[in-house]
Amino acid sequence: MTASKDHILSQLRKQSVPASELPDLQQAELTQQWITYPDLSEQFTELLASIKGLCLRVKNVEEVNQRLAELPVYQESKQICSLIPNCGQPNVNVNEITDPHDFNDVDFAILPGEFCVAENGATWISNDGGPTRTLYFLAQHIALIVPASEVVPHMHAAYERLTFENPSFGTFMAGPSKTADIEQSLVIGAHGARSLTVFLVDDAF
């Protein structure tokens, strides 16, 4: 093991590779060039729609509940989980589940998202690594609840917000799971969520 490590490193050190500089991504000449949008949440909504997701702008959690009740996939869901207080009508107690496999029959999960990215319709989610991490991928349908103020223009701004000092898991989720592996025909619902709805909520929750 160490033998291979030493071998690879010495192989690499043996090569003469011309020095090369790492660009400073914060320099103004670059950051001034990054795309801007007049209305971030509008751009995000439009982008998410183009990748088959749905963004709904609402005032508060009560309105989330109203809009959820109108969603056909929510109405049809038998098992519902929620990680947001007072949001949805969950009938699976998340705290009782220790094995992620037990989420296998969850139809709808209401989960927190941290912020959204206008340029690509992605929402950043993070999870402490408990069994609930699986919910983001195993549930048939997902709603992400995000404060409306938390929309950044592009990925550079996204990474300004992120630090990875401790062990962690996080992902950018952009729309529902999809594949075009059969003759380039887009099919929604490959392995992960069949639908993704992002609620941008104005009031604190």
């Binding site: 401790n166 729309g175 992960g192």
Partner: peptide, 14 residues
Amino acid sequence: PITTYSSHFHGPKP
């Protein structure tokens, strides 16, 4: 514009 999932793994689950 981005893949559906861009997952960042930093260390194992607890």
